[in-house]
Protein backbone atom coordinates (compact mmCIF):
# COMPACT_ATOMS: atom_id res chain seq x y z
CA UNK A 1 0.00 0.00 0.00
CA UNK A 2 1.40 3.37 -0.93
CA UNK A 3 1.60 6.18 1.57
CA UNK A 4 -1.07 7.98 -0.39
CA UNK A 5 -3.57 5.11 -0.18
CA UNK A 6 -2.80 4.71 3.51
CA UNK A 7 -3.61 8.34 4.13
CA UNK A 8 -6.91 7.94 2.31
CA UNK A 9 -7.76 4.84 4.30
CA UNK A 10 -7.00 6.62 7.54
CA UNK A 11 -9.15 9.54 6.45
CA UNK A 12 -12.04 7.20 5.60
CA UNK A 13 -11.83 5.54 9.01
CA UNK A 14 -11.73 8.87 10.83
CA UNK A 15 -14.51 10.33 8.69
CA UNK A 16 -16.80 7.30 8.99
CA UNK A 17 -18.19 8.17 12.41
CA UNK A 18 -19.14 11.79 11.73
CA UNK A 19 -20.57 10.81 8.36
CA UNK A 20 -22.59 7.97 9.86
CA UNK A 21 -23.85 9.79 12.94
CA UNK A 22 -24.02 13.44 11.84
CA UNK A 23 -24.11 13.91 8.08
CA UNK A 24 -26.40 11.01 7.17
CA UNK A 25 -29.10 11.81 9.75
CA UNK A 26 -29.08 15.49 8.73
CA UNK A 27 -29.23 14.51 5.05
CA UNK A 28 -32.09 12.14 5.78
CA UNK A 29 -34.29 14.81 7.38
CA UNK A 30 -33.37 17.35 4.70
CA UNK A 31 -34.53 14.91 2.05
CA UNK A 32 -37.66 13.94 4.01
CA UNK A 33 -38.61 17.61 4.24
CA UNK A 34 -39.39 17.60 0.51
CA UNK A 35 -41.71 14.58 0.73
CA UNK A 36 -45.38 14.62 1.61
CA UNK A 37 -47.84 12.49 3.57
CA UNK A 38 -51.06 11.10 2.21
CA UNK A 39 -53.35 8.72 4.04
CA UNK A 40 -50.77 7.99 6.72
CA UNK A 41 -48.05 7.06 4.21
CA UNK A 42 -44.95 9.12 3.44
CA UNK A 43 -44.66 9.60 -0.33
CA UNK A 44 -41.28 10.29 -1.95
CA UNK A 45 -42.70 12.91 -4.25
CA UNK A 46 -40.34 15.93 -4.14
CA UNK A 47 -42.15 19.24 -3.65
CA UNK A 48 -41.96 22.45 -1.62
CA UNK A 49 -45.41 22.28 -0.03
CA UNK A 50 -44.04 21.79 3.50
CA UNK A 51 -42.00 24.98 3.30
CA UNK A 52 -45.01 26.79 1.83
CA UNK A 53 -47.17 25.55 4.70
CA UNK A 54 -44.62 26.79 7.23
CA UNK A 55 -44.05 30.28 5.82
CA UNK A 56 -47.69 30.70 4.81
CA UNK A 57 -49.15 30.02 8.25
CA UNK A 58 -48.81 32.56 11.03
CA UNK A 59 -49.28 29.89 13.71
CA UNK A 60 -45.93 28.36 12.75
CA UNK A 61 -44.05 31.43 11.56
CA UNK A 62 -45.26 33.49 14.53
CA UNK A 63 -44.27 30.76 16.97
CA UNK A 64 -40.87 30.57 15.28
CA UNK A 65 -40.27 34.34 15.54
CA UNK A 66 -41.46 34.27 19.15
CA UNK A 67 -38.96 31.51 19.86
CA UNK A 68 -36.12 33.50 18.24
CA UNK A 69 -37.03 36.51 20.39
CA UNK A 70 -37.05 34.33 23.51
CA UNK A 71 -33.61 32.93 22.63
CA UNK A 72 -32.25 36.44 22.08
CA UNK A 73 -33.49 37.43 25.54
CA UNK A 74 -31.82 34.35 27.02
CA UNK A 75 -28.55 35.36 25.33
CA UNK A 76 -28.66 38.96 26.58
CA UNK A 77 -29.60 37.97 30.12
CA UNK A 78 -27.04 35.18 30.38
CA UNK A 79 -24.25 37.45 29.09
CA UNK A 80 -25.34 40.22 31.49
CA UNK A 81 -25.10 37.73 34.36
CA UNK A 82 -22.28 35.55 33.03
CA UNK A 83 -19.77 38.26 32.07
CA UNK A 84 -19.43 39.77 35.59
CA UNK A 85 -19.11 36.28 37.05
CA UNK A 86 -16.39 35.32 34.56
CA UNK A 87 -14.61 38.62 35.15
CA UNK A 88 -14.77 38.16 38.93
CA UNK A 89 -13.30 34.65 38.69
CA UNK A 90 -10.56 35.88 36.34
CA UNK A 91 -9.52 38.60 38.82
CA UNK A 92 -8.94 36.02 41.60
CA UNK A 93 -5.56 34.33 41.79
CA UNK A 94 -4.17 30.84 42.11
CA UNK A 95 -6.28 28.05 43.52
CA UNK A 96 -9.21 30.30 44.44
CA UNK A 97 -9.67 31.11 40.77
CA UNK A 98 -9.90 27.50 39.63
CA UNK A 99 -12.00 26.47 42.59
CA UNK A 100 -14.49 29.20 41.68
CA UNK A 101 -14.41 28.21 38.01
CA UNK A 102 -15.14 24.63 38.98
CA UNK A 103 -18.09 25.82 41.07
CA UNK A 104 -19.42 27.86 38.16
CA UNK A 105 -19.44 24.91 35.78
CA UNK A 106 -20.54 22.40 38.42
CA UNK A 107 -24.20 22.43 37.24
CA UNK A 108 -23.01 20.79 34.01
CA UNK A 109 -22.40 17.61 35.98
CA UNK A 110 -26.07 17.44 36.85
CA UNK A 111 -28.83 16.01 34.69
CA UNK A 112 -30.80 18.59 32.73
CA UNK A 113 -34.12 17.11 33.87
CA UNK A 114 -33.08 17.20 37.53
CA UNK A 115 -32.18 20.89 37.13
CA UNK A 116 -35.57 21.59 35.56
CA UNK A 117 -37.49 19.96 38.41
CA UNK A 118 -35.31 21.73 40.98
CA UNK A 119 -35.86 25.11 39.37
CA UNK A 120 -39.58 24.51 39.12
CA UNK A 121 -39.71 23.69 42.82
CA UNK A 122 -37.70 26.85 43.62
CA UNK A 123 -39.82 29.19 41.48
CA UNK A 124 -43.18 27.73 42.60
CA UNK A 125 -45.78 29.11 44.95
CA UNK A 126 -44.20 27.40 47.97
CA UNK A 127 -40.69 27.61 46.52
CA UNK A 128 -37.46 29.05 47.86
CA UNK A 129 -37.69 32.29 45.86
CA UNK A 130 -41.16 33.15 47.16
CA UNK A 131 -40.21 32.23 50.72
CA UNK A 132 -37.17 34.48 50.52
CA UNK A 133 -39.07 37.45 49.07
CA UNK A 134 -41.84 37.09 51.63
CA UNK A 135 -39.22 36.60 54.37
CA UNK A 136 -37.42 39.89 53.60
CA UNK A 137 -40.75 41.66 53.35
CA UNK A 138 -40.55 42.35 49.59
CA UNK A 139 -43.80 40.48 48.98
CA UNK A 140 -46.86 40.27 51.21
CA UNK A 141 -47.65 36.70 50.18
CA UNK A 142 -46.29 34.07 47.78
CA UNK A 143 -46.81 34.96 44.12
CA UNK A 144 -47.26 33.02 40.88
CA UNK A 145 -45.20 35.69 39.15
CA UNK A 146 -42.20 33.40 38.63
CA UNK A 147 -43.73 30.17 37.34
CA UNK A 148 -45.89 29.05 34.41
CA UNK A 149 -45.25 32.06 32.20
CA UNK A 150 -42.64 33.36 29.72
CA UNK A 151 -40.64 34.90 32.59
CA UNK A 152 -40.21 31.43 34.08
CA UNK A 153 -38.93 30.10 30.74
CA UNK A 154 -36.45 32.97 30.51
CA UNK A 155 -35.19 32.56 34.08
CA UNK A 156 -34.92 28.77 33.83
CA UNK A 157 -33.14 28.73 30.47
CA UNK A 158 -30.72 31.44 31.62
CA UNK A 159 -29.84 29.54 34.78
CA UNK A 160 -29.39 26.27 32.91
CA UNK A 161 -27.26 27.70 30.09
CA UNK A 162 -25.20 30.11 32.22
CA UNK A 163 -22.17 27.77 32.59
CA UNK A 164 -21.93 27.56 28.78
CA UNK A 165 -21.59 31.36 28.71
CA UNK A 166 -19.24 31.79 31.67
CA UNK A 167 -16.68 29.28 30.44
CA UNK A 168 -15.79 30.79 27.03
CA UNK A 169 -15.80 34.33 28.47
CA UNK A 170 -13.38 33.22 31.18
CA UNK A 171 -11.14 31.51 28.64
CA UNK A 172 -10.94 34.63 26.48
CA UNK A 173 -10.19 36.79 29.52
CA UNK A 174 -7.45 34.41 30.56
CA UNK A 175 -5.78 34.72 27.17
CA UNK A 176 -5.25 38.46 27.65
CA UNK A 177 -1.52 38.94 28.43
CA UNK A 178 -1.07 40.52 31.87
CA UNK A 179 1.58 42.76 30.29
CA UNK A 180 -1.11 44.58 28.35
CA UNK A 181 -2.90 45.49 31.57
CA UNK A 182 0.34 46.74 33.15
CA UNK A 183 1.16 48.73 30.01
CA UNK A 184 -2.27 50.29 30.08
CA UNK A 185 -1.80 51.25 33.74
CA UNK A 186 1.71 52.62 33.00
CA UNK A 187 0.26 54.82 30.30
CA UNK A 188 -2.09 56.31 32.81
CA UNK A 189 -5.36 54.54 32.05
CA UNK A 190 -7.63 54.02 35.01
CA UNK A 191 -9.33 50.70 35.81
CA UNK A 192 -12.42 51.66 33.84
CA UNK A 193 -10.47 52.83 30.77
CA UNK A 194 -8.39 49.65 30.83
CA UNK A 195 -11.53 47.58 30.94
CA UNK A 196 -13.26 49.51 28.20
CA UNK A 197 -10.29 49.73 25.81
CA UNK A 198 -8.34 46.53 26.52
CA UNK A 199 -10.29 43.86 28.43
CA UNK A 200 -13.70 44.20 26.83
CA UNK A 201 -12.54 44.20 23.17
CA UNK A 202 -10.15 41.31 23.76
CA UNK A 203 -12.79 39.20 25.53
CA UNK A 204 -15.42 39.87 22.89
CA UNK A 205 -14.76 36.69 20.84
CA UNK A 206 -15.33 34.55 23.94
CA UNK A 207 -18.43 36.54 24.80
CA UNK A 208 -19.83 36.01 21.30
CA UNK A 209 -19.02 32.31 21.50
CA UNK A 210 -20.80 32.04 24.86
CA UNK A 211 -23.82 33.89 23.50
CA UNK A 212 -23.94 31.54 20.51
CA UNK A 213 -23.86 28.51 22.79
CA UNK A 214 -26.79 29.86 24.79
CA UNK A 215 -28.71 30.80 21.64
CA UNK A 216 -28.38 27.46 19.90
CA UNK A 217 -29.11 25.44 23.05
CA UNK A 218 -32.20 27.53 23.82
CA UNK A 219 -33.42 27.31 20.22
CA UNK A 220 -33.56 23.53 20.31
CA UNK A 221 -34.98 23.22 23.82
CA UNK A 222 -38.58 22.03 23.73
CA UNK A 223 -38.77 20.60 27.25
CA UNK A 224 -38.10 23.70 29.40
CA UNK A 225 -40.95 25.79 27.90
CA UNK A 226 -43.34 22.88 28.35
CA UNK A 227 -42.33 22.26 31.96
CA UNK A 228 -42.20 25.79 33.37
CA UNK A 229 -43.95 27.92 30.75
CA UNK A 230 -47.55 27.04 31.59
CA UNK A 231 -49.97 27.70 28.77
CA UNK A 232 -47.55 30.17 27.15
CA UNK A 233 -44.71 27.66 27.01
CA UNK A 234 -45.15 26.94 23.32
CA UNK A 235 -42.07 27.11 21.14
CA UNK A 236 -41.10 25.93 17.68
CA UNK A 237 -39.46 22.83 19.17
CA UNK A 238 -42.88 21.80 20.45
CA UNK A 239 -44.41 22.27 16.99
CA UNK A 240 -41.74 20.01 15.49
CA UNK A 241 -42.30 17.45 18.25
CA UNK A 242 -46.05 17.40 17.54
CA UNK A 243 -45.50 16.41 13.89
CA UNK A 244 -43.81 13.12 14.81
CA UNK A 245 -46.56 11.48 16.89
CA UNK A 246 -50.23 11.26 16.14
CA UNK A 247 -50.09 13.63 13.15
CA UNK A 248 -47.49 11.39 11.50
CA UNK A 249 -46.39 14.31 9.34
CA UNK A 250 -42.66 13.61 9.39
CA UNK A 251 -42.00 15.60 6.20
CA UNK A 252 -43.52 18.77 7.70
CA UNK A 253 -41.62 18.24 10.97
CA UNK A 254 -38.43 17.78 8.94
CA UNK A 255 -39.08 20.99 6.97
CA UNK A 256 -39.45 23.05 10.18
CA UNK A 257 -36.28 21.40 11.53
CA UNK A 258 -34.49 22.35 8.30
CA UNK A 259 -35.53 26.01 8.71
CA UNK A 260 -34.38 25.87 12.33
CA UNK A 261 -31.03 24.41 11.29
CA UNK A 262 -30.56 27.03 8.56
CA UNK A 263 -31.27 29.91 10.97
CA UNK A 264 -28.95 28.42 13.61
CA UNK A 265 -26.16 28.02 11.04
CA UNK A 266 -26.69 31.57 9.78
CA UNK A 267 -26.45 32.99 13.29
CA UNK A 268 -23.38 30.88 14.11
CA UNK A 269 -21.82 32.11 10.84
CA UNK A 270 -22.53 35.76 11.65
CA UNK A 271 -21.22 35.30 15.19
CA UNK A 272 -18.08 33.59 13.95
CA UNK A 273 -17.48 36.38 11.44
CA UNK A 274 -17.95 39.06 14.10
CA UNK A 275 -15.61 37.22 16.47
CA UNK A 276 -12.89 36.76 13.85
CA UNK A 277 -12.91 40.48 12.97
CA UNK A 278 -12.29 41.26 16.64
CA UNK A 279 -9.27 39.00 16.90
CA UNK A 280 -6.08 40.92 17.59
Amino acid sequence: MTGHAKRWLLFAVVAALPVLFILLPIASFLITSFFRVEGGVILADPNLSNYGAFFGNWTYLGTFLGTLWLCLQVVLLSIALGYPVAWFIWRRSGTVRYALLLLAVMPLFMSYIVKLYTLRAMLGLNGLLNQMLVGIGFLDGPSQFFLFNQRAVLITMTVIYLPFVILPIFLSLERIPRGLLSASADLGAGAFDTFRRIVLPLSLPGTIAGGLFAFVLALGDFVTPQMVGGTTGFTIGRVIWSQFGLAYNWPFGSAISAVLLAVALLIIGLGGYAASRRRV
Binding site: T59, T231, F234, V239, S242, G245, A247, N249
Partner: peptide, 14 residues
Amino acid sequence: NYEKRVAVWNEVKA
Protein backbone atom coordinates in the same frame (compact mmCIF):
# COMPACT_ATOMS: atom_id res chain seq x y z
CA ASN B 1 -58.55 13.71 10.59
CA TYR B 2 -55.71 13.35 13.09
CA GLU B 3 -53.43 15.71 11.18
CA LYS B 4 -56.04 18.45 11.33
CA ARG B 5 -56.51 17.83 15.06
CA VAL B 6 -52.79 18.32 15.68
CA ALA B 7 -52.79 21.49 13.53
CA VAL B 8 -55.78 23.00 15.39
CA TRP B 9 -54.27 22.06 18.75
CA ASN B 10 -51.04 23.84 17.73
CA GLU B 11 -53.12 26.91 16.82
CA VAL B 12 -54.73 26.84 20.26
CA LYS B 13 -51.36 26.59 21.96
CA ALA B 14 -49.84 29.35 19.81
